[in-house]
Design a protein around this nucleic acid. Sequence first.
DNA 1: CCCTCATGTAAACAATGTCAACATCTCTCA
DNA 2: TGAGAGATGTTGACATTGTTTACATGAGGG
Lengths: 186, 186
Amino acid sequence: MSTSLNSPYHHGNLRQALLEAALIILEKEGEAGLGLRDLARAVGVSAAAPYRHFDSRAALLEALAVTGFQRFSAAMEAVASSNPADPMAAMGKTYVLFALSNANLFRLMFSPQLKKDGRPGLRMAADAAFDTLRHVVGGDMQTGRIKALAAWAKVHGLSILLLDGQIALRAGEDTEALIAEIIGSL
Amino acid sequence: MSTSLNSPYHHGNLRQALLEAALIILEKEGEAGLGLRDLARAVGVSAAAPYRHFDSRAALLEALAVTGFQRFSAAMEAVASSNPADPMAAMGKTYVLFALSNANLFRLMFSPQLKKDGRPGLRMAADAAFDTLRHVVGGDMQTGRIKALAAWAKVHGLSILLLDGQIALRAGEDTEALIAEIIGSL
DNA sequence: CCCTCATGTAAACAATGTCAACATCTCTCA
DNA sequence: TGAGAGATGTTGACATTGTTTACATGAGGG
């Protein structure tokens, strides 16, 4: 190992480095601005190197989305295990705030470009994330299923509309307060 | 004019033809599969011809999204002016069904690729569409604003989750029935 | 110690969006 | 009527991108 300072050939941990750099570029430039060549250059490696770790650009994006779902899942579990007074509301707020503070990553997770059919890894990651949601929200999905789905839809839609700048804030209005109000309105 | 049958030079109404063909390709192949060259070929015109009518591919997509918002708006007005028993529910259902039956167009309308900043046309079309929504839903956005926003978020989120195949139908469950149930759960 | 395999490089390809230079048609106006 | 002139379409080229193939390098096990 030794992460030698002047051996430009073997990076040592390229896959991880690519993912990290990609996340940064993604948040800064958006998915469209995330080119394989730029990414490779950012990591200091040749244009073809990423192909040793990802089959294609789509695979790279998929990997990013997967880590996105993992982080999302972690955020959800964290707030759930903090035993908040109103679990639904707390998780809803976390949901939306996650979307807002990881805008492009969140968009990527639900990007139509990554059809979850034929991409088992992504589907599994997404399902896992939403399973923890389901687990916390509705103890039994039998009786509360519809309500849980409705809450999910509301929170998800709110995230996207805010992300899109479609919901306009009023003068001096606080985003977080608005989120809380909307989530609270059952 | 005379739309002569064998004058391949001037198409006559290329812009419209491009948009129509693009809509078809979009629904069939998705946004990623909508290439300018393929589109041009589909209309029987050279690869550079579209540039006489659209500044760039993005501009073409924007135009598509704009017509999407117009159709959406029209659908909303239609159901509203049919004086349904429960206007909110009826419009919600129409909202979701529009998304489901124009999947890729709907996704395009909210695509992050078309940032609505710096794209005044799109923003105006979107605002116009949602204004008719607001107009019908909340007579006064002062008191009912939060509830209206919540309903909007729920319906929008439901659309996207369904589009993504994230909400799984149970055996023998009807999509429309599920939509009605979720919308009805206030 | 060597040789094998994972990992990185270099050079090339096809496809795409885009542009510049040229061709063709339509329409206005003297 | 009959020429420009401006709009619309074509051809050919360019830069960029994702991707592949053939080669180089080096770490680690037998």
